[in-house]
C-alpha cells in the first residue's frame, strides 16, 4: 500500500489541503488537531500522576502503621485495584455526580484524571509499602531509639530509603499512566485515542494515523522514562542497593 502523510496538512473542516500546515481560527489542520490531542493526553496523565503520587505515598505509609488507619488504607487499595479502570472512569463520570451534585460542574477531563489517579494510587501504595517493608526493622527501631517521633522517623529515615528502592518499579507505573490515559476517550476527552478513531474515519488513512499516534505515545512515555532514570541516578547513595559499582 502507498503511504500518504500529506493529509495531516489538510483542513479538518473542508478536508482539503491548506497552504501551510497550520490553519487559522477554527479551521485547523489534522496536524494541529493531533497536537492538541497530544496536549490532552499529556494533561490527563500529568494530573493523574500528581494525584497518584501524593495519595499513593500517603496510603502506602498508612498501610505500614500499626493503627486503625491501616484498615482504611487496605480498603482503599483493594477498592481501587479490584475494579477495571474503564469501569472506574464510567463510575466517576456517570454515577458519582448523580449522588454528589457538586461534581456535575467538573469537566470530563478532571473526572477522568481523578479516576486514573486513584486507580494508579492503589498500585503505587503497594509499591511504597513493599519499599518500606523491605527495610530491616532495625531502621525504624534505631530511629525511635534516637528519640525521633513517628513522623520524623518516616520523614528522615524510612521514606528516603524506601522511595529509592522502589524507583525502578515506580518508573513503570509512571509510564503506565501515560498509556492508561487513553481510557479518557470513553468520557469524551479529545485525547490521542479519540483523535485516532475519528480522524481515521474522516480521512481513511488509518495506518498513518495510528502510526503517528503510537509514536507520540512512545515519545511521551520514553521522555518520562528518561526523567525517572535521571532522578534515579541523581538520588543514588553509596553503599545502598541499586548503585552501579
Amino acid at each position: 500500500m502507498a503511504w500518504d502523510w500529506q493529509f495531516f496538512c489538510n483542513s479538518t473542516i473542508t478536508t482539503e489541503a491548506t497552504a501551510s500546515c497550520f490553519g487559522k481560527g477554527g479551521d485547523i489542520t489534522y496536524l494541529q488537531w493531533m497536537l492538541s490531542a497530544w496536549g490532552w493526553t499529556v494533561s490527563v496523565a500529568a494530573l493523574a500522576l500528581v494525584i497518584a503520587l501524593l495519595s499513593g505515598v500517603a496510603i502506602g505509609v498508612l498501610r505500614t502503621l500499626a493503627s486503625r488507619w491501616k484498615l482504611v488504607a487496605m480498603m482503599w487499595v483493594e477498592l481501587f485495584r479490584n475494579i477495571p479502570l474503564l469501569v472506574q472512569v464510567f463510575i466517576w463520570y456517570h454515577v458519582v455526580p448523580a449522588f454528589i451534585p457538586a461534581l456535575q460542574a467538573l469537566s470530563s477531563f478532571l473526572l477522568a484524571s481523578i479516576a486514573l489517579g486513584l486507580f494508579t494510587s492503589a498500585r503505587i501504595a503497594e509499591q511504597v509499602r513493599s519499599g518500606i517493608q523491605a527495610l530491616p526493622r532495625g531502621q525504624s527501631q534505631a530511629a525511635s531509639a534516637l528519640g525521633l517521633s513517628l513522623v520524623q522517623s518516616y520523614r528522615y529515615v524510612i521514606l528516603p530509603q524506601s522511595l529509592r528502592i522502589i524507583l525502578p518499579a515506580l518508573t513503570s507505573e509512571v509510564m503506565n499512566v501515560v498509556k492508561n490515559s487513553s481510557v479518557a476517550f470513553a468520557v469524551s476527552v479529545t485525547e490521542l485515542t479519540l483523535f485516532a478513531m475519528q480522524a481515521q474515519e474522516e480521512t481513511a488513512r488509518g495506518m498513518e494515523i495510528y502510526l503517528a499516534v503510537t509514536m507520540l505515545y512512545v515519545i511521551t512515555a520514553l521522555t518520562l522514562n528518561r526523567i525517572m532514570a535521571w532522578i534515579e541516578s541523581m538520588t543514588q547513595l553509596p553503599g545502598v542497593i541499586g548503585v552501579k559499582a
Binding site: 479538518t12 473542516i13 473542508t14 477554527g26 478513531m197 475519528q198 474515519e201 474522516e202
Partner: peptide
C-alpha cells in the same frame, strides 16, 4: 465518534 456527523457538526459550527 467515528461518524460523519462529527465532521458535519464542526463545519456547521
Amino acid at each position: 465518534t467515528g461518524t460523519t456527523s462529527f465532521t458535519q457538526l464542526r463545519k456547521l459550527s
